[in-house]
Amino acid sequence: MAEQSMPNQSLNQSSQRSLKRSNEPVFWALFGAGGVVAAFLLPAVILITGLAAPLGIPSPELFSYERASAFASSWAGALFLFIVISLSLWHGLHRVYHSSHELGIHRGPLLSVIRLVCYGTALGGTVLSAYWLIAAL
């Protein structure tokens, strides 16, 4: 059916080198989900755990071990922490990997190593956070 409407069949084929389906959708989906999570949740989360907690603002009792572990061992709290940690890692490390390409590492073994380290860390962080959070439930 399409044949009649393709005037330059031969040229089309010559310019269409072997096109391989990329597996990038897997990583991009995780990157994108992580980007959403990081954008909506991270600023407040960092403010709470990174600044308010160590500085004891507004009061140190809020950051007691009891309260923190009660949060982490509730289903909702565990799920929240798991999503924030794992998806932030997939998001951040995907960008770090792509930046290495932008900064001049185009191919070769070094790029493969960076790729392995980036996605390996993301996967490791996902597994560890799931493990520790489930253990604490």
């Binding site: 990081a38 991270l42 989360v45 960092i46 755990t49 990174g50 071990y65 923190a68 572990s69 982490a72 922490l81 924030v84 940690i85 794992s86 932030s88 890692l89 998001h91 951040g92 490390l93 995907h94 960008r95 770090v96 792509h98 930046s99 932008e102 860390t121 962080g125 560890l128 956070s129 520790w132 959070l133 253990a135 604490a136």
Partner: peptide
């Protein structure tokens, strides 16, 4: 913009460690 990813990553690892201390 892309460099924000470095902080996002480091923070997530740091928070992961915090979760670990809870256990």
């Amino acid at each position: 913009r892309e460099s924000t990813a470095v902080f996002v990553t480091l923070y997530a690892l740091q928070l992961l460690y915090g979760v670990y201390t809870l256990t």
